[in-house]
């Protein structure tokens, strides 16, 4: 095939693909988010593998058992596992004592800068502002010293 050397002999076609989605939260997600709306954090539990899943799952990824047991995760039992700064905000991966997994959220700036390992608690939005979404936790903030 002859080589194309003239720019005007090369064509392209511009178009776009607009798409919209509506996602269900799922069996575990629906229950988890309804609880968040009530200001509670819960995780699902696999006793035989000693695993506690947050966000909760309906199955244990290890033994693949169906999980029906859930337990409360105290909202003040978190700690900063890691963090980063995004557009002037601190985004942290918050883990909880005795729980596998964790939640992503904003970390409220304190007098001291953020550090890995500091204890934090989840601060929920006012009840009337909660939507049943992860953003019902307005931010995490440092507890104690």
């Amino acid at each position: 095939m002859e080589r194309i050397t003239e720019g005007d002999q090369i064509r392209r076609w511009n178009d776009h693909i607009p798409l919209q989605w509506k996602y269900t939260a799922g069996v575990a997600g629906e229950r988890f988010l309804q609880l968040l709306k009530q200001g509670k954090i819960q995780a699902s539990v696999c006793r035989s593998c000693n695993k506690t899943y947050l966000p909760p799952k309906i199955f244990c990824k290890e033994c693949f058992a169906q999980l029906s047991e859930w337990r409360d995760v105290p909202s003040d039992s978190g700690y900063v596992y890691s963090f980063t700064a995004v557009n002037g905000e601190i985004i942290a991966l918050v883990k909880f004592d005795g729980v596998d997994g964790g939640l992503l959220g904003r970390l409220r700036k304190g007098r001291e800068g953020p550090r890995i390992g500091i204890k934090v608690k989840a601060v929920f939005r006012r009840k009337e502002d909660r939507k049943g979404a992860l953003s019902d936790i307005e931010y995490f903030e440092r507890t104690g010293v």
Partner: peptide, 16 residues
């Protein structure tokens, strides 16, 4: 149920 909605408008320029 707690369904969440998202939209994307992906733009392309395909080489002919």
């Amino acid at each position: 149920v707690l369904a969440s909605e998202y939209a994307a408008d992906l733009k392309y320029s395909w080489a002919s």
